[in-house]
Simulated scan of single mutants.
Amino acid sequence: MNKPNNTFDLIEVEKVKGISKQEFIEKYYKKKKPVLIEGLTDSWNDKWRFDYIKEIAGEQIVPLYTSEPTKGKKNSLDPVAKMKMSEYIDLLRTQPTDLRIFFYMVKDNLPQLLKDFEFPDIGLPYFKRIPALFFGGQGAKVFMHYDIDLGDNLHIHFEGRKRVLLFGPDQNTNLYKVPFSICNLESIDMSNPDFEKYPALKNAKGLVANMNHGDALYIPGEWWHFITYVDGSFSMSLRSLPQDPRRFAGMLYNVFFMRHVDFWIRKIKGQKWIDYKDKWAYNRTHKKLGINKRA
């Protein structure tokens, strides 16, 4: 049976439960293979609910972001709005919203939570400085990207449901990777791809993970992910910095060179630089794949 014209070639990510440290290291960590682990946080995740976050952080003023592409010289780290955490959680519970909290550092903002979880003992060499929280409303989307530090990510989800599309680094060209960036063309709607305008997407092969409360998704470094909040919910990211020399060098390049070059050219050129990179990505992809279609 042929798949619909506007859907990716996806298979369900492998699910496991009761996995040992040795099994995780041998089957997934060493092979850089995503896996959805059920039951990994059962000993502590019952406390991780909106009510508890509201109780300990309800008065905090939190920065909010949307999925709208950042235009011109605007800094992508500038929030579009701010509100009390309690008001934001009420919003998540009562209606769809595109407003999200992005990379909210637990140690800096909610240190109480450090007592309310355990780093899962599965063999990941965690960087314990940066457990971070992510919140989103029903229907909110996180643009397609891979993490700039190229680190492995254990993404643990709470409250509602979340859908994650995953693509390996071997899919960079098919996804229209943008130069000097960790994302693909933001004009691509990953939830409803236009294969006529972006024909390389038809070649992209990936995985899909449907997450529920307490599920932990292992996302290896360099893997692309596109996230949709099916319900208002939140997640915690536990990270491990790159261990092999190639990826560690890539992290240094991304963090200390590429990011700053892109920032300063954008600060000078504004939207012209964004448009130039997008055209570059579009034409480069088609040239590599022999597709006779140019921007």
Rank of each mutant, 00 (worst) to 15 (best):
M1Y: 09
Q95V: 13
K269S: 11
K293E: 07
L201W: 10
Y88K: 01
D147R: 05
V80E: 07
F195L: 08
N254Q: 10
L289N: 05
K21C: 07
K82L: 03
V261I: 15
N192F: 13
V178N: 01
G123F: 02
I89A: 03
L166V: 12
R247S: 06
P131D: 07
L175W: 04
K267G: 07
A209Y: 02
L241W: 05
L10E: 04
N210M: 01
N192C: 12
T94N: 10
G168C: 12
V230W: 01
D121E: 13
N192Q: 12
D42S: 14
D116S: 06
N5R: 08
W264I: 15
E159G: 00
N283Q: 09
I25F: 03
N109H: 12
F127V: 08
N174P: 04
L10M: 10
G168N: 13
W44P: 01
E196A: 02
N174D: 11
R259K: 13
I188M: 03
D194T: 03
S43K: 12
I53K: 00
G136A: 09
Q112V: 07
Y28N: 01
D42P: 03
Q243Y: 07
I53D: 01
S76C: 04
N184L: 03
R129M: 12
V164R: 01
L207A: 02
H260G: 08
D189H: 06
W48K: 04
K162Q: 08
E196M: 02
F226N: 10
S235T: 15
N75E: 12
V16Q: 04
K267W: 15
G123I: 03
A249G: 10
S233M: 00
S67N: 13
W223T: 05
S181K: 04
Q243G: 10
P111N: 08
K202C: 04
K54M: 11
K54Q: 14
L133Y: 02
H157R: 07
D116H: 11
R247E: 06
G136F: 08
L289T: 04
K279D: 15
G221V: 04
P63N: 00
I130E: 11
K21E: 14
T7G: 00
L154E: 02
D108S: 13
A216S: 14
P131H: 08
K32R: 14
D98V: 06
H286S: 09
S240C: 12
N45S: 12
P169V: 09
S237P: 00
P242T: 06
L201F: 05
I268P: 02
L64T: 00
R161E: 15
I274A: 06
I130S: 10
L241R: 06
V106L: 01
R161H: 11
R266V: 02
T70L: 03
L64D: 04
D194P: 04
A249P: 00
G206N: 02
L110W: 05
E59K: 10
L77H: 14
L114F: 02
F119W: 15
Q271K: 09
K115F: 10
P111K: 05
K21W: 05
S235K: 06
T285N: 01
F50L: 01
P220N: 06
M144R: 05
K202E: 14
W48S: 05
F263T: 14
M236K: 01
L10H: 10
A81T: 01
Y29T: 04
P96D: 08
R93D: 12
H260P: 05
I268W: 13
A140C: 07
